[in-house]
Write a protein that binds this DNA or RNA. Sequence first.
DNA 1: GTTGATGTTGAACTTACTTCA
DNA 2: GGTGAAGTAAGTTCAACATCA
Length: 279
Amino acid sequence: MELGLSLGDASKSPVLLKENNSPNQNQNQSKTSGLDFCMSLGLTSNNQERGKAQENDDVSASDDSQEETPLQLNLLPLAPLPRQISSSHNGSSKNGSSAAKGFDVNRTPAAEEASSSNSRREFEANDDDGLNARKKLRLSKEQSAFLEESFKEHSTLNPKQKLALAKQLNLRARQVEVWFQNRRARTKLKQTEVDCEYLKKCCETLTLENRILQKELQDLRALKTSNPFHAATTLTMCPSCERVASASTSASAAKVIPFPLARPRFYPFPTHPNQPAAS
DNA sequence: GTTGATGTTGAACTTACTTCA
DNA sequence: GGTGAAGTAAGTTCAACATCA
């Protein structure tokens, strides 16, 4: 089951809930319009096996075997790494990049030789003896910045672009591919947060408007009961303030001018962050 | 200053799905 | 139409850090 919420056009129904059996429909929508918003609910199996991950490591390693391998396995004794090693490279960066943290496992072995202080980390990061099968590595500031620039140009890569980027950044094609996948996910998440904020504001606006309408209805009912002999009442809408006004009439039949289907809003919806300001 | 608990970030992974040859 | 490869989204895992008591 999937709940979809469409956003972006205040002239249309602000929130649309519908069942959608095709998950990709929403994906395509969000590609064509920056204002779309969707939420998915679902069950996924969570029986991932570490053994499979190991298998996958092997596969990806063989997949990338044709590519340039930027790393070299240093055979140093395995020992716990003191915290100070990373801290000493840390500087003042907050959540800093690997460059600021002095942790760039993607440097060429030659470059790595130049800084022997990192050799322990390098060893740990490159350890693929099976005991430390999944070591996380951070891309350098420069690598991240370059990928970011590429992402601004195109959020998806064709194989040629992927290979070129990988070569340029001294990364594996798989790393570039994963980076773009994660980057797209982050973008979408951020957009969802923005859309949620927008929906919240819309909700507040509607609540306020609803309260006003309720009050108005209450007043009209009170007016009707207080003037039972003036049942023949014409309800008209003031063209300037768009508020309903009642007027006694001598007409024999009650005449009610219905609200337009799309009643003008007392308080317009807030502008969506992605929407250009209305002229 | 050190340490352990806890939260955050992001790289890498798995799974399910679609598209296309 | 069935099939396998390739690509992607969504969700998850986990190492590396940051923060704080």
